[in-house]
C-alpha cells in the first residue's frame, strides 16, 4: 500500500509533497502536493495550497485547491480559496469563498467537449420560446427565412440577411433639420 495518512492527532508545519494517495485527518500548515488521490477528512484542515489529481474535501482548506482530474467538496467542507479542476463538484452544505474554474491539463478531451457544448448552445437557444414581447415578429421572420432556404441554396447566412432586410424602417421623428430655423425666418421676411 502506498497510501499516506495524516491522522487526527497530527499537526504538520511545513510542506507535504510526493507520490501516492494522501488522507488528511489532522492539520497541515503548509502546501500539500501529491500526484495521487487526496482526501481531506471532516476534521482535517489545511492552511496552504492543495494540489492533487482527485481531491475530495470534507474539511477545511484555507488556500487554493487544484485538481488535475477533479475537485469534489462534500457536505461540511469549508474552502476559502480558488477551486481549479476539469471537474468541480460542490455538494449542498459545502462552503466556498473564492473563484471556481473548470479547466486544467487533462481537460483537453473534456475541454473540447466543453467547447462543442458552448457552440451547440447558441444554436439551440433560439429554438426555445422567446419572451412574449418579441415572439410575434420572430415567428414571421423564421417562417420567411425557411421559405428563403427552400428557394435558394441553404446557407447559414440566410437568416442573418433576412433579419437585416426585415428590420423595421428607422422611425420618422419630426424634427427641425439643419438650417430650418433660418429658412423659417426667411419665409417670414
Amino acid at each position: 500500500m502506498n497510501g499516506s495518512v495524516i491522522g487526527r492527532g497530527t499537526v504538520i508545519r511545513g510542506n507535504v509533497r510526493g507520490s501516492g494517495s494522501l488522507e488528511i485527518l489532522g492539520r497541515v500548515e503548509g502546501d500539500v502536493s501529491v500526484s495521487g488521490e487526496l482526501v481531506v477528512g471532516e476534521e482535517g484542515a489545511v492552511r496552504g495550497n492543495v494540489t492533487g489529481t482527485h481531491i475530495t474535501c470534507s474539511g477545511a482548506v484555507q488556500g487554493d485547491v487544484r485538481g488535475s482530474e477533479a475537485v469534489l467538496l462534500e457536505r461540511g467542507a469549508r474552502v476559502v480559496g480558488d477551486l481549479t479542476a476539469p471537474r468541480v463538484g460542490v455538494a449542498t452544505g459545502a462552503l466556498v469563498k473564492g473563484n471556481v474554474r473548470t479547466d486544467g491539463e487533462p481537460a483537453l478531451a473534456g475541454r473540447r467537449a466543453g467547447t462543442a457544448g458552448a457552440v451547440a448552445r447558441p444554436i439551440a437557444l433560439p429554438a426555445r420560446p422567446a419572451p412574449a414581447a418579441k415572439s410575434e415578429p420572430r415567428h414571421e421572420l423564421r417562417a420567411e427565412a425557411r421559405e428563403e432556404i427552400v428557394d435558394s441554396e441553404p446557407s447559414a447566412a440566410a437568416p442573418k440577411e433576412m433579419a437585416a432586410r426585415e428590420a423595421p424602417p428607422p422611425p420618422v421623428v419630426p424634427s427641425l433639420g439643419k438650417g430650418a430655423k433660418a429658412k423659417k425666418k426667411k419665409r417670414e421676411d
Partner: peptide, 17 residues
C-alpha cells in the same frame, strides 16, 4: 497507525502528533 507517511511522500517541516 494514526499517521502514515507513505513511501514516495516527503514532509518538510515540523510534524507533531
Amino acid at each position: 497507525a494514526g499517521t502514515v507517511i507513505g513511501e514516495g511522500l516527503s514532509v518538510e517541516g515540523d510534524l507533531s502528533s
